[in-house]
């Protein structure tokens, strides 16, 4: 019987280290500069809305009056355009992605500009 040419590879794989890791227990460190979850240094944000206009997936809503910055992580495509166009460089990607979620959660950040408390304003702005 002749051995197939795959046999050496198979034997090598059998005796070498596993190439997968037991995921939830061992998680690989994200690479530096990886585009993970988006966040906003809200204290530096001037609520100009450039990120919302330039975003290709239109996942960011900025409410100047309320001082609200909202990102829909389910629509975000992690392209980093907002990060580049922000005039105050207040948008950043974290290294890691968001963990799996059971329900839709928006990334909502509240800044200093006009301090009015009106929870529905964000919804109204989104509906407009």
């Amino acid at each position: 019987m002749r051995l197939g040419p795959m046999v050496p590879t198979v034997v090598k794989n059998l005796i070498s280290k596993k190439s997968t890791r037991p995921y939830p227990f061992v998680v690989r460190e994200p690479f530096p500069d990886q585009r993970g979850e988006l966040y906003c240094d809200i204290e530096q944000c001037i609520f100009c809305g450039t990120c919302a206009r330039k975003c290709p997936s239109q996942c960011i809503t900025v409410d100047k009056e309320q001082g609200l910055w909202i990102c829909d992580p389910f629509a975000c495509v992690y392209c980093g355009t907002c990060e580049e166009v922000c005039p105050t460089h207040c948008l950043h990607h974290k290294g890691a992605w968001r963990p799996v979620a059971g329900e839709r959660q928006m990334i909502e950040m509240k800044g200093t500009p006009p301090k009015k408390k009106k929870k529905d304003a964000a919804k109204d702005a989104a509906a407009e």
Binding site: F31, D33, Q34, R35, V77, Y78, C79, G80, T81, H93
Partner: peptide, 8 residues
């Protein structure tokens, strides 16, 4: 590039 598949 920062992304795995769609590299932007």
């Amino acid at each position: 590039t920062g992304n795995r598949v769609i590299v932007s």
